[in-house]
């Protein structure tokens, strides 16, 4: 199994080295041409050679990732969960995430590593998502990552029609989401009995009473536990009978470097990422629907 992955990796490394050596040779030949004009060299370096090398590297890395995930990670996930559906190349659609009104979608949206399955009779769906904001200030443009991490959905037992979001507070509360929800009907901010919870999270809802119906003291404890246990800013959304959990950990899960063989350290890291999904489901399982219905 690991030989197959290693073959893909070595092939990728070879392709990258060939592209790099080729680009350097062409660059060297261009520099050898007796001319005072170095523009062709710069043109090649800037617009030709370097991007080609980067594209080759990107493709080789992608093939290596897919081989690792298809050959190794698939069996790991199938051992941990049941009724598993995997799509490592794609994740949730932009529309699916937008309908949750949990994560604001800026200019660029990426999603991959879709996993759907059941764990402890709880059906779940999850995927990695990344949201980037292209900020233009004068002549300069730079890209800011606004969200990167796990997005997980589970069905809840309780029936509800409204929309409630629990957001972990940010530094100086600079993540005030009201403008993002401007198109939504009336939203109110509610406070619960626990001062500790209120200090850590902001609760916005379209129906105050429903927010209290969903956020029982027991469930609040579980949400707090998720925040404590897992690194990153947590967002919880109660939308259309589902609980959406987004953890902005700034991490891309299940990644490998092309120049690194599959090793025990990486496997342990990826196992920990799977354990995160399991841990979250275990914490909220009591409130989840445990029928045979898939999401």
């Amino acid at each position: 199994m690991s030989e197959q992955i290693e073959q893909v990796r070595q092939k990728g490394v070879k392709q990258f080295l060939i592209a790099l050596i080729g680009a350097l040779l062409v660059l060297f030949l261009l520099l050898m041409i007796p001319s005072t004009d170095r523009m062709p060299v710069l043109m090649f370096g800037g617009f030709g050679g370097l991007p080609i090398v980067l594209v080759v590297l990107g493709n080789a890395e992608k093939k290596y990732h897919l081989a690792y995930k298809d050959i190794f990670l698939r069996s790991l996930l199938e051992n941990e969960f049941y009724d598993v559906t995997l799509n490592f190349e794609e994740g949730f659609s932009k529309e699916e995430i937008a309908s949750g009104h949990l994560v604001r979608l800026y200019d660029r949206f990426y999603s991959d590593d879709y996993i759907a399955g059941k764990y402890k009779d709880v059906a779940f769906e999850c995927s990695d998502i990344k949201v980037e904001d292209v900020v233009r200030s004068g002549k300069h443009t730079h890209v800011v990552t606004r969200f990167q991490g796990l997005y997980l959905k589970v069905n809840l037992k309780k029936e509800f029609t409204g929309w409630t979001v629990v957001r972990e507070k940010e530094f100086l509360d600079n993540g005030n989401p009201r403008p993002f929800w401007s198109e939504m009907p009336e939203i109110e901010k509610v406070s619960v009995e626990s001062e500790e919870f209120n200090q850590k999270f902001s609760i916005y809802t379209s129906n105050g009473e429903e927010a209290f119906y969903l956020l029982t003291p027991h469930f609040m404890e579980k949400l707090y536990e998720i925040e404590r246990r897992y690194e990153g800013r947590c967002l919880f959304g109660f939308v259309c009978g589902q609980l959406h959990i987004a953890i902005d950990s700034r991490k891309d899960h299940f990644v490998l470097n092309l120049f690194e063989k599959v090793n025990e350290y990486r496997i342990a890291e990826h196992q920990a990422e799977i354990d995160t999904i399991k841990g979250i489901i275990e914490l909220v399982a009591k409130e989840c629907e445990t029928t045979c219905n898939t999401l």
Binding site: E193, G208, E210, F212, T216
Partner: peptide, 17 residues
Amino acid sequence: EDHLQAARRFYNSNVTL
């Protein structure tokens, strides 16, 4: 009773404010 608890907690939260 879950709904009643929620209504009671919501009411008390508004009373506190």
